[in-house]
Amino acid sequence: MSKLTHLDEQGQAHMVDVGHKLPSQREATAEGFVTMQPATLQLILEGGHKKGDVLAVARIAGIQAAKKCSDLIPLCHPLMLSGIKVELEPQPEHSRVRIEATCKLSGQTGVEMEALTAVSVAALTLYDMCKAVDKGMVIGDLRLLEKIGGKSGHWQADGSTPA
Rank of each mutant, 00 (worst) to 15 (best):
S2F: 13
S2I: 07
K3M: 14
T5L: 13
H6E: 10
H6W: 02
D8W: 00
Q10D: 14
G11V: 00
G11Q: 01
H14C: 04
V16R: 11
D17S: 03
G19R: 08
H20F: 06
K21T: 07
P23A: 06
S24V: 06
E27R: 15
A28V: 02
T29E: 06
A30N: 09
G32I: 02
V34I: 15
M36F: 04
M36W: 00
P38Q: 05
A39W: 00
T40K: 03
L41G: 15
L41P: 14
L43N: 14
L43Y: 00
G48P: 08
K51M: 09
V54Y: 03
L55E: 05
A56R: 10
V57W: 04
R59D: 08
A65Q: 06
A66L: 07
A66E: 08
A66Q: 09
K67Q: 15
C69S: 13
C76R: 05
C76V: 01
M80A: 13
L81I: 02
S82Y: 02
S82Q: 14
K85P: 10
L88W: 01
L88P: 04
E89C: 03
P90T: 03
E93K: 03
E93Y: 02
S95N: 15
S95M: 05
R96P: 09
V97D: 05
V97G: 08
I99D: 03
I99Y: 10
E100C: 15
C103R: 03
K104W: 01
L105H: 08
Q108I: 02
M113A: 08
T117F: 01
A118L: 02
V119Y: 12
V119L: 11
V121K: 05
A123D: 03
T125F: 10
T125H: 11
T125M: 14
L126A: 13
L126C: 15
L126H: 04
Y127K: 11
M129R: 04
M129F: 12
I139D: 11
R143G: 03
R143T: 01
L144F: 05
L144S: 09
L145K: 15
L145T: 09
I148A: 06
I148F: 00
G149E: 09
G149P: 13
G149K: 01
G149D: 11
G150H: 05
G150P: 05
S152P: 07
G153Q: 11
T161H: 11
P162N: 12
